[in-house]
Design a protein around this nucleic acid. Sequence first.
DNA 1: GACTTGACAGACAAGTCTGTCTGTTCTAAC
DNA 2: GTTAGAACAGACAGACTTGTCTGTCAAGTC
Lengths: 195, 195
Amino acid sequence: MVMKQDNRTPAQRILATASDLFYRNGYRATGINEIIEKSGVAKATFYDHFPSKESLALAYVKSMNEADKRGVEEGLKPFPGPYEKLLGLLDFLVPWSKERDYRGCAYLNIASEIPDHSHPVRHESKGRYQVIRTLVGQLVHELKKQRGRAWKDKDADRIADDYLLIFAGALALAQVYHHPRPLREAKDAATRLLA
Amino acid sequence: MVMKQDNRTPAQRILATASDLFYRNGYRATGINEIIEKSGVAKATFYDHFPSKESLALAYVKSMNEADKRGVEEGLKPFPGPYEKLLGLLDFLVPWSKERDYRGCAYLNIASEIPDHSHPVRHESKGRYQVIRTLVGQLVHELKKQRGRAWKDKDADRIADDYLLIFAGALALAQVYHHPRPLREAKDAATRLLA
DNA sequence: GACTTGACAGACAAGTCTGTCTGTTCTAAC
DNA sequence: GTTAGAACAGACAGACTTGTCTGTCAAGTC
């Protein structure tokens, strides 16, 4: 269980273990003791770094948020234009959902386990979607500019909203169906939306 | 807390209380003791009717599924045709989300708390979306027939899939944002989809 | 009037949860 | 070498979890 020669700091190991367990098994279903055991850390060490389980939940969502932000930024760089970027964003979902047994959107899942909607974790989850909405909005505006007269009657913001609905819907449906088909359908739907 | 002169049976009271708590606070966050206390029932009575908390979870999802199925059927009756029904379905969401402090799709929420995707509760959740997909599919096919030549090149199933993505996306986004705007946007998006 | 049924009250078992605390061991800087 | 800081092991507290069990009471049935 305990990995020797692990050059990560205890805090990193804890966060990595917790991220995996929180996502795979759920926040409440995951106990502190399991996190401690699986990350090969003493209980006191855990509480040295995270004053409570709740603070770990927040660290989990924040670190995901940052990682995803960077990941999307890097991942979209190779695509030449806004159109390709917008479709590319959806392309990432299929392989990513297959990597680990897909359990839906991590932000939505943990948010649904925290009723208080003013809780920092909920705030961070909302922030994630706002970041995506902003990015999509910029790309659609860019696309509108690019298309010129052909798109002069299109409302870029409305298209961005539609895109986000499709995006979020795909994540949700792939979870209930436990199948990546909705993710592919989402790309088709987006292709039509941006046609 | 205990309602006197409650003519519901203990099982009904338990299910009603549990439904409320499971939805509002989450499945794991809700303890048996709380359900027992709030429904004014003895612990032994609870276990007479439900052999375990898990069985109550299943009863919860099943009863919702049946109620929703009937609710949609009844609710769509007044609408004259498939087009109106499809948009009407989305119209229900806004007032319904305002009734109780909206916490997202109940089926998705409890499904996300149960990792095992072959669990009966997950199966029931999936069933809910399949029922909606079937209904939407029928309505779109009906609509295609109605529109005749104007829609001869449209793929009804693809439109139904798109509709469902928008539908599911709206539920998810309304939860993260804790605001009904995505539900309205979904109606706009569907209007364009069916134009 | 005895008997069954179903609900009541609540103690109890056995285990889990988060979080605290004591004390030991390792490592790196001086 | 000594010393400070960090991580270690793991006992412990106290609350909370699901589920069992004993026994009481009221209503309806034979």
